[in-house]
């Protein structure tokens, strides 16, 4: 555990909390892609299948449970409790276009051809592209509420910090995981355009509005 990895985990946790608080306090999930949230729930479910078989640390297990619980709580709020506020007309990304390629790639490129390993790899590939429905939704409506952009910034920072962590681990312990690193780079690159808009607009007090 290094400071970048901890920072990444905390940014991820912050993103999840921002999203839950936004939905809970405004009693609305307007502007949030339920499709992306489905993909995140699927990601954590596939990745943390080892929760009961592979104990790493109390920190590790607690965070896994928190991420899983938050992912499903978000789905509950969006699809059950505040269903009426869900903006499904703008959330039209086809999930199979991301799930099927991620599953196919996980079957071909993995560390070991076993169920738990292929599921872990699938989760890594799926997470890399899970934000696309959300970014697609923002580009479709042309804008995002500030709170939604804070959520996206925290979520994007998480994998960016993980990349720094992987560079650090490579030099300090000779550790590297090509699958996680390449997928993590793809994941972070997807946020670059958003990062640019966030820094040039939202941090200056303006609403995140895409250029017409």
């Amino acid at each position: 555990m290094n400071i970048f990895r901890l920072g990444g985990d905390l940014a991820h946790l912050l993103a999840i909390i921002i999203l839950l608080l936004k939905i809970w306090t405004t009693r609305s999930c307007a502007g949030i892609s339920g499709k992306s949230q489905i993909l995140f729930a699927l990601t954590f479910t596939a990745r943390y299948l080892d929760l009961f078989t592979n104990f790493v640390s109390v920190y590790n297990s607690v965070m896994k449970v928190v991420y899983l619980a938050a992912a499903y709580a978000t789905l509950y709020l969006m699809y059950v409790k505040f269903k009426a506020t869900y903006d499904h007309n703008h959330d039209t990304f086809r999930l199979e276009f991301l799930i099927l390629p991620a599953a196919g790639l996980a079957l071909i490129i993995n560390h070991e051809f076993s169920i738990i390993e292929v599921m872990w790899t699938f989760s890594i590939y799926l997470e890399a592209v899970a934000i696309l429905p959300q970014l697609f939704m923002v580009s479709k409506t042309g804008e995002a509420e500030s709170i939604t952009s804070h959520y996206l910034f925290a979520l994007g920072s998480y994998r960016a910090l993980y990349i720094v962590n992987w560079v650090y681990r490579y030099y300090s312990e000779g550790f590297y995981d090509m699958i996680a690193t390449l997928a993590g780079v793809v994941q972070t690159v997807l946020y670059c355009d958003f990062f640019y808009l966030y820094i040039t607009k939202v941090l200056k007090g303006k609403k995140l509005q895409l250029p017409a």
Binding site: H12, V56, S57, K64, E112, W120, N165, G174, D177
Partner: peptide
């Protein structure tokens, strides 16, 4: 060393 080690990450 390269594979599996990342399982300590989240």
């Amino acid at each position: 060393r390269a594979s599996h080690a990342s399982k300590d990450e989240l």
